[in-house]
């Protein structure tokens, strides 16, 4: 009985430790974003302090405002999401439902493109975009973001399309609908949920991307993940402001993550299940 109780306490302690370990760095950033710089740097670290919104006011409306960077992040992420979905939805439908020669190969190709290390894509892309003057442009970044968002979106959507019974299409054909009408009026409305989940993940991945952004961004287009570096330099770190920027960069994805909570495992493991044969 006592052994059981000790075990229970141990388990509780360990799990709580993990919970704390995951929450703390995020929570700590939030707390620091509400401090003055001297409070941030206090030793020992201050858990209780008089909160201020000064850091947020500074990073949003101060001289080095990151508002343009937040706008950049949103434009890039939303643009990527729209273009990705416009291409991925029809492609995923074809891969999931239509019969044609080379379908297996096409599916494999989509999967294989994800194997390319991003650094191997950015080197040639940098050279090409430099030649056509697309560095530091939205179209340059959004285009290259398709390299990872498209395969991901296609595979995630395929799994949703496959859940719809074939009779749906057959019934629609017999009701006199064309293939396009069937797709638009019958099939797509039934995968609305899957499309929403895919949108969340595509947005999330675009928002979080860093390597491409750091190479291709400049003074006009600079997402917030890259702009963060303005607050840390060799000479000095603007602690509280950095915390505020981090929180602002985290906010949209955390909200989306919690909204998409139930589908997160499916979103994270997409493609892998199909990858090397069936489960």
């Amino acid at each position: 009985m006592i052994a059981k109780r000790i075990r229970l306490v141990a388990v509780l302690a360990i799990t709580l430790l993990f919970l704390l370990a995951w929450v703390f760095p995020i929570l700590w950033s939030v707390l620091n974003s509400l401090k003055t710089d001297s409070d941030v740097l206090a030793y020992p670290p201050k858990l209780f302090f008089s909160p201020t919104l000064e850091p947020y006011r500074d990073v949003l409306f101060g001289s080095a405002s990151i508002l343009p960077n937040l706008v950049s992040s949103f434009v890039i992420s939303i643009g990527t999401t729209i273009i990705t979905m416009l291409m991925a939805v029809p492609a995923a439908y074809a891969l999931a439902r239509l019969r044609f020669r080379g379908k297996k190969f096409a599916g494999f190709y989509v999967l294989a493109t994800q194997m390319l290390p991003p650094v191997g894509i950015i080197i040639p892309y940098f050279l090409i975009l430099r030649n056509i003057g697309w560095i530091d442009t939205y179209q340059g970044i959004i285009l290259i973001y398709l390299s990872f968002s498209l395969p991901f979106a296609i595979w995630l959507l395929v799994s949703y399309f496959e859940d719809i019974p074939f009779e749906m299409e057959e019934a629609a054909y017999l009701d006199g609908a064309s293939r396009m009408k069937t797709l638009w009026r019958i099939i797509i409305p039934q995968v609305r949920g899957g499309i929403a989940v895919t949108i969340v993940f595509v947005f999330l991945n675009a928002w979080n991307e860093f390597l491409f952004a750091v190479v291709l961004s400049g003074n006009t287009v600079r997402p917030v993940t890259v702009a963060m570096f303005n607050f840390v330099s060799v000479e000095q770190t603007l602690w509280a402001k950095l915390a505020a920027v981090s929180v602002l960069a985290m906010l949209p994805v955390v909200i989306l993550g919690i909204v998409a909570q139930k589908n997160i495992v499916k979103g994270l493991t997409v493609g892998a299940v199909k990858g090397g044969g069936r489960r």
């Binding site: 009779e167 057959e170 019934a171 054909y173 017999l174």
Partner: peptide
């Protein structure tokens, strides 16, 4: 084509459009 045949069908699963 199926859609040009002027045929109506009731499927075993009914295939009602759920949305």
């Amino acid at each position: 084509d199926a859609r040009d045949r002027d045929i109506a069908m009731v499927f075993q699963s009914y295939a009602l459009y759920p949305h």
